[in-house]
Simulated scan of single mutants.
Amino acid sequence: MGPFTEGWTEKDVEAVIAKGDPSDLLYVPIVVGMNAPDCEREWAEEICFKLASHPNFNVRGNAILGLGHIARTCRALNLERAIPAISRALADQDPYVRGHADDAASDLRIFLGVSVPGHGNNT
């Protein structure tokens, strides 16, 4: 996926982050979110939280989606940070980010049993 091949390492992820190219960076939260059980969940979360405020909408949206992937694959997530981040993303100016925030909020409801303010009928 993007700059990542099978057998990627945390060093590979850190190198893409250090490079900072949004066309590669947008793959980072998906790769770490989908593989959080195989790496350190907290490390994957931290990357997603950091990228959730990125200026590029694709990176920002995928970071929020990555949090949903972590909730689904690990059945755990730092809710004190994730709920506000996803709630903010539900009100993002970009529809791509809002759409992924909707998906992530659904993942939190389904897999962790928590509601995100601003999602659906939850306000």
Rank of each mutant, 00 (worst) to 15 (best):
D94V: 11
G99K: 10
A82L: 02
D103M: 11
E46Q: 14
M34P: 09
I47P: 03
E42G: 08
N78K: 05
N35K: 13
G66C: 06
L26R: 06
P117T: 15
D21C: 01
G33I: 08
V97D: 00
R72Q: 09
E6P: 11
G68I: 02
P37I: 04
E45M: 03
V16G: 00
A82G: 03
V16R: 01
V114D: 10
T73R: 15
T5P: 09
S53R: 12
C48W: 01
D103T: 12
R81M: 08
H54N: 15
T9V: 06
A63N: 02
P55Y: 08
H119N: 08
I47R: 05
G33P: 10
R41K: 14
A15M: 05
R75Q: 02
A89G: 12
N121Y: 12
C74T: 00
F49H: 05
E10P: 08
C48Q: 01
I70M: 05
L67Q: 00
Y96M: 12
T9W: 14
G66E: 07
N58W: 10
K50Y: 01
E6M: 11
L77A: 02
G99Y: 04
K19G: 00
V114Y: 12
A105V: 06
Y27F: 15
L90I: 03
D92V: 06
T9K: 12
R109A: 12
P37A: 05
D102Y: 14
A91H: 15
H69W: 12
G2Q: 12
S115M: 09
N35F: 14
P37L: 01
H100S: 11
T73Q: 11
W8N: 12
I110V: 11
Q93W: 08
A36F: 10
G20R: 02
E45R: 00
V28Q: 00
H119D: 03
A71T: 02
E46P: 07
P117C: 13
K19D: 02
L108C: 02
G99V: 07
P117V: 15
G120K: 08
R41W: 00
V97E: 00
A85S: 07
I30H: 10
D12F: 09
N121S: 13
D103G: 08
N58G: 10
H119A: 12
T5V: 14
A18W: 02
T9C: 07
D12G: 11
F49Q: 01
R81Q: 09
T123E: 14
M1W: 13
V59F: 04
L51I: 05
C48P: 06
E46L: 08
V13G: 06
L67P: 01
H119E: 01
A18D: 05
P117G: 13
A82F: 05
A15R: 04
G2E: 15
S23K: 06
F57D: 14
Y27W: 15
V31P: 05
D102W: 14
P55D: 07
S106R: 15
S106Y: 13
R81F: 01
R72N: 06
T123Q: 14
A91D: 07
F111P: 02
R109I: 04
G33R: 05
T73E: 09
R98A: 13
C74Y: 00
N58F: 09
A71E: 01
S53P: 06
G2F: 13
W8S: 13
C74N: 03
K50A: 06
G7D: 13
